[in-house]
């Protein structure tokens, strides 16, 4: 004779049922903090690494373009101009790069828990995003040292972050499940990222491009997004057309990402 208790009392006497949104945010936070904790507990420099990488690149490009070739690109102070592009790029590059291993790295965990599957992707976007936010003080420090003035353009910052998050999440939601079936994609993505670095206005600005090319460049959504970041110090960098294109493309990427992910998740679970 089964015990005649109702299921609710069996489950957990003290706990009200959690809403799906609550489960999602709790899990997302747990996984994200795990990512950060693992990274910082195993390395001596910890947090500094997430800054050192873009910083080293910034110094290299600053040296090449101001000390070796005297080419007038970007804006003064050039190091601040560079960092304002490089830090968001590091977020983009890191999240997209890591998303190729989103399911493979945590295969055991994916196989043994019943979590909303998109959490495995979202947490990469979030943890890289947090590292990006933590690196912003470094940019501010450089701005102060090199005398770049903070302008009202800083009000664009929330929009820039939101658009970039949507863009990255959408792309990662497409890439993560596809890599499970086509492992080659992992290397292809790395290649595309390397190409994209130079095809995005990071070491230069949209206005440095020859006429005609800048219109095409606007269809790289990073163009509009980076111009919004730069608006904090260089308000004349904002190109309304590029921003609108970036906004549309980011939302389309997010929608497409959600769609692709939904269709593929069933097959992914079988494969890993």
């Amino acid at each position: 004779m089964p015990v005649p208790l109702s299921i609710v009392t069996l489950a957990s006497p003290s706990r009200p049922p959690r809403t799906p949104a609550r489960v999602y945010s709790q899990t997302l936070w747990l996984l994200t903090s795990r990512d950060l904790k693992v990274r910082y507990s195993t390395s001596f420099l910890g947090y500094l690494w997430s800054v050192l990488d873009p910083l080293a690149m910034a110094v290299i490009y600053w040296f090449v373009f101001t000390q070796i070739v005297d080419r007038a690109i970007g804006a003064e102070p050039y190091i601040v101009f560079l960092l304002a592009g490089l830090l968001p790029w590091t977020w983009f590059n890191g999240a997209i790069g890591d998303s190729t291993r989103a399911f493979i790295k945590d295969a055991k965990l994916v196989r043994s828990t019943r979590l909303p599957r998109s959490v495995w992707v979202a947490r990469i976007v979030l943890s890289k995003g947090i590292e990006f936010l933590l690196a912003i003080p470094v940019l501010l420090a450089f701005a102060i040292v090199f005398g770049a003035e903070l302008t009202w353009g800083v009000l664009w910052l929330p929009l820039a972050i939101a658009l970039q998050a949507a863009l990255i999440l959408g792309l990662c939601l497409m890439i993560a499940p596809l890599v499970v079936f086509f492992r080659d994609l992992e290397r292809a993505v790395k290649l595309v990222l390397r190409f994209l670095f130079y095809a995005s206005p990071i070491i230069y600005g949209l206005s440095d491009l020859p006429d005609g090319l800048d219109v095409w460049m606007a269809f790289n959504p990073l163009s509009g997004i980076i111009s919004l970041y730069r608006a904090s110090f260089f308000p004349d960098q904002v190109e309304p057309f590029a921003v609108i294109v970036a906004a549309i493309m980011s939302l389309v990427a997010l929608g497409a990402g959600i769609l692709v992910f939904r269709r593929m998740v069933r097959a992914v679970l079988k494969e890993i």
């Binding site: 299921i7 489950a11 957990s12 055991k108 965990l109 196989r111 043994s112 828990t113 019943r114």
Partner: peptide, 12 residues
Amino acid sequence: GGVAPLIEITGG
């Protein structure tokens, strides 16, 4: 109701 899965338990 919730499930406690003892499947690949060391996975997490």
